[in-house]
Design a protein around this nucleic acid. Structure first.
Length: 603
RNA sequence: GCCCCUGUAGCUCAGUGGAUAGAGCAACUGUCUUCUAAACAGUGGGUCGGGAGUUCGAAUCUCUCCAGGGGCGCCA
């Protein structure tokens, strides 16, 4: 009964590379409805008007079917007709499809679709056939996307605040991959600025201090000194390597050493949470290539550049001060809608961050990506705005750039907020956080805290401020959604482990033996396509985290009811159920992978 | 003062202009000799911050007010 079952969802959709791709049911139904409206228009039943995009969603109540649309209600005004009549006209023109059992019109004008249950049962085979590529969509097939995220300068270890953007960015990349895009992950950094010189100087001080040389260790008030203890460790390692041979050197060799160590550390931390960048883009290359000055020249040619000593709104004192200075170079962004003009070249002829940032985004666009995603922290909120003005001013299309602004993370321990600041040294690193979760976890997983961190930092709208509750993160019970989801996968694997001992397999399973419980799960599992599509097109990776929880929430009650290895379950039923759990396992594995999490076999 | 984000159940949060606003946790009551109880079943819980508007229909869109967070540098 398993033969020929895998064709239904993806018959029409193959990419150039020959990979099978699925199309979400809601999109398929939406095209049917759209066509039906067009048909009704061309035979004169409906007047001519522009058809809005047809939204198909699973309704809240099961008696309203599996999918529903309110399109007839929306068309009431342009068509100047009763919505119920419109719905009737549309549903009459909908073609028969193997996956649809019934189409009903419900007042005040909804069209409700119910899936064919035989077809639904056969999707067990589709899911198994798709495996790790389950619901790889055609949406981005043949297109390239780039996600830029983390982009922290190597001045300190990755702290929790930055980690949110890291997790969100990588999850976004995974979702775009699932949507069919060819995805590049990029990390933009600068190792040439004042911050890095400060880092070199700070390490030099720690180095001299460790050697017992007379040196003043700056206080916490000194913003140019990095207080972090890690520099004391670096200094010791440096002495072990080079002895006291560097005592007469300036900041330079110290900067190089610190940078290299710091980057290793950041990359190691990122690798721990399953994040790997394809490209590390150094801001400095925009200077050596001349791109920065090209941008300035191009802006100037378009009349967006002027020189001035002061800015509007300066106090008398500031004006007096400015009189004695050389003029700075301004970008006339206010002409494009900005609140004020921005300095792009300082009086000392060095550019501010704005100019290379514009050059960088121009560079990204010129590399030919179809979609660019930029994950930024809330403290950089205005930055992208200025960059977009600059990119547009140069005649490029800034609308290709999608910015995800992630709001702040606060770390809570026993209800108390823990302050985080890289420079002051009282930072809380992502490594520390993971280690703390690991310490209280009794599972056999390696580094279990990484999955907890990935989920908890993802499962919130980026627009929402995030309180990371450490007390919740370390609980190993149903309070913790991470284990709730992973446990669903563990339970599936457990069945197969046991089935093997009992010499039971799922070959030749008769899927018609699957009942309502299994159907409920399959309906939810088939929503994954829509979830991926929605998360990818609205740049909202947190959707997948919520969906994962809903899927587990559908699964666990079924697991209680639908037993495989009970004595009162017939062998045929057991085979069919085993086949079903194989599909369930694949679905959970896929969803966890989309979030960069592991699908453990045991916990 | 200006800009951005947030305000939904006791707590933490979902919610795409549509049908009776959802989930988890917490609280209470039950369920393991059978594939992991890190689970399941059940109960209670709401002026969707306030007000006005647009709409056949608003938690969702507009305006306004209130509260919290972030940003307003010739730092990045």
């Amino acid at each position: 009964m398993i033969q020929s079952a895998t064709v239904h969802l993806f018959t029409d959709y193959k990419t150039a590379r020959g990979i099978l791709v699925l199309k979400p049911l809601s999109s398929q139904i939406a095209s049917l409805v759209e066509q039906a409206i067009r048909d009704a228009q061309s035979d004169g039943t409906l007047p001519t008007f522009e058809i809005p995009s047809v939204e198909i969603n699973p309704p809240k109540r099961p008696e309203q079917g599996d999918y529903a649309t309110a399109i007839a209600l929306q068309l009431a005004k342009p068509a100047q007709m009763n919505p119920l009549d419109i719905a009737a006209h549309i549903s009459k023109r909908l073609p028969e499809k193997d996956y649809i059992a019934t189409i009903e019109v419900a007042p005040p004008g909804f069209i409700n679709f119910r899936l064919n249950e035989d077809w639904l049962r056969q999707q067990v085979e589709t899911i198994i056939a798709e495996g790790d590529d389950l619901f790889k969509l055609e949406l981005g097939a043949g297109k390239r996307a780039q996600v830029e995220f983390v982009s922290a300068n190597p001045t300190g270890p990755l702290h929790v605040g930055r980690s949110r953007g890291a997790i969100v960015g990588d999850s976004m990349a995974r979702i775009l991959e699932a949507a069919g895009y060819d995805v590049e992950r990029e990390y933009y950094f600068n190792n040439a600025g004042q911050q890095m010189i400060n880092l070199g100087n700070s390490l030099r001080i720690r180095y001299l201090e460790a050697l017992g040389k007379p040196v003043n260790v700056p206080s916490e008030d000194d913003k140019s000194f990095y207080q972090g203890e890690y520099l004391i460790d670096f200094a010791k390692d440096l002495i072990a390597e080079k002895g006291d041979s560097l005592v007469d050197e300036d900041w330079q060799p110290f900067k190089e050493y610190a940078e290299q160590r710091m980057f290793e550390w950041i990359k190691r931390t990122l690798a721990r949470v399953n994040i790997h960048h394809d490209v590390f883009f150094n801001e400095d290359s925009l200077y050596t290539s001349g791109a920065v000055w090209d941008v300035l020249k191009a802006l100037d040619e378009r009349g967006y550049i002027y020189k001035a000593k002061e800015w509007e709104g300066a106090s008398e004192e500031e004006k007096a001060k400015a009189e004695r200075r050389k003029p700075a170079t301004y970008f006339r962004s206010s002409k494009l809608g900005d609140d004020k003009d921005r300095v792009v070249v300082k009086a000392d002829d060095s550019p501010t961050y704005t100019l290379p940032d514009i050059a960088y985004h121009v560079n990204k666009i010129e590399r030919g990506f179809d979609v660019l995603v930029n994950v930024l922290g809330a403290d950089h909120g205005t930055e992208y705005k200025v960059v977009a003005y600059g990119v547009n001013a140069l005649g490029y299309d800034a609308s290709k750039i999608h910015v995800i602004i992630v709001q702040m993370v606060r770390l809570l321990r026993k209800g108390q907020v823990i302050k985080m600041s890289t420079r002051a040294g009282d930072y809380d690193t992502l490594d520390d956080l993971i280690d703390e979760i690991n310490q209280t976890n009794e599972s056999n997983l390696i580094d279990p805290g990484t999955d907890v961190v990935r989920y908890l930092l993802l499962a919130r709208s980026p627009d929402s401020h995030l309180d990371f509750d450490l007390d919740l993160a370390v609980t190993q019970s149903n309070e913790n959604p991470v284990y709730y989801i992973q446990n669903a996968h563990v339970r599936c694997v457990g069945i197969f482990r046991q089935a093997e001992e009992n010499n039971l397999n799922d070959e030749g399973a008769d899927l018609s033996l699957l009942g309502d419980d299994e159907l409920r799960f399959l309906r939810k599992a088939l929503e994954l396509g829509e979830q991926i599509e929605f998360a990818a097109t609205t740049f909202a990776p947190h959707k997948i985290a919520f969906y994962a929880h809903e899927l587990a929430n559908t699964f666990h009650p079924i697991y209680e009811n639908v037993r495989v290895l009970h004595s009162d379950v017939s062998e045929d039923a057991a085979k069919a159920r085993l086949r079903f759990y194989r599909a369930a396992q694949i679905t959970f594995k896929r969803v966890l992978a989309l979030m960069g999490m592991r699908a453990p076999d045991k916990m």
